[in-house]
Design a protein around this nucleic acid. Structure first.
Lengths: 130, 130
DNA sequence: CCGAATCCCTATAGATACTG
DNA sequence: CAGTATCTATAGGGATTCGG
């Protein structure tokens, strides 16, 4: 590496390389508009499709469907279909999904704590005209 | 709240409400394709534009520019222009940016640790044909 | 030459409307 | 109820141009 020789910043163990890609992919999935809100909603227990939809309110059926499908594919939630009429589909967090809640909430709390700093920066940027 | 009465899952303090929006926005920004790799690159110290570009390798000038601009607007990096010929532009993490490294790395390590679980889930999904 | 702006193009995220 | 089908907006990439 280039080593720009700076000591003021903790040299965090170089998260580039292939690892970084997985992290980025995870962040992209989690950062998708609805992933986090769905995951945290499911943190309180299993919910069915319409329950999630009603609870979140502003999400479209399509986005709820695709978000849940992707979370399912990645192993964060399970999908249980009860083929009655009308059909009933329940979504539950997997162990992996529950495990994710930890670091997710850490980042969430950071965001809440530092939200004003971001706002201030944006305000300043707006004033300067960036 | 609805309280689906489930005790098996830690009842994480309901990260919905307005807060959740900020969290989501932050995750979206951080989850953007190049944000994280840029931030972690800058963790070792200030770098100039071309240095970042060369170091990351696969990023386009356009994306590097816009990523840095957004990170600047949100207060994660500072941009220092030295109007020489040829011009020189240095990027540095702000205190806010440095602070972000903590939770970011936590999530990063989680991703690395659990990456195989996601892979397995995807494999299974592919077999079933989801 | 460096850093960026701009145009153009494609892929995909996301919203609206319809269906079994 | 729980989706699919259809359309639109935006993210992201490549190439070109520009100003110093």
């Amino acid at each position: 590496m280039k080593a720009t020789s700076v000591t003021s910043v903790k040299p965090i163990k170089h998260t580039s390389s292939p690892d970084c890609r997985h992290v980025r992919e995870l962040l992209a999935r989690i950062g998708a508009k609805w992933s986090m809100i769905v995951v945290t909603r499911l943190a309180t227990g299993p919910m069915r499709f319409s329950e999630l939809k009603r609870d979140i309110g502003t999400i479209s059926q399509k986005m709820l469907t695709s978000t849940l499908r992707e979370l399912e594919r990645d192993g964060f939630v399970t999908r249980t279909v009860t083929p009655t009429i009308p059909p009933r589909v329940d979504y539950t967090l997997t162990d992996l999904g529950v495990d994710l809640l930890g670091p997710l909430e850490a980042l969430g709390e950071w965001a809440v704590r530092n939200q004003h700093r971001v706002e201030q920066a944006r305000e300043r940027a707006r004033e300067v005209g960036v």
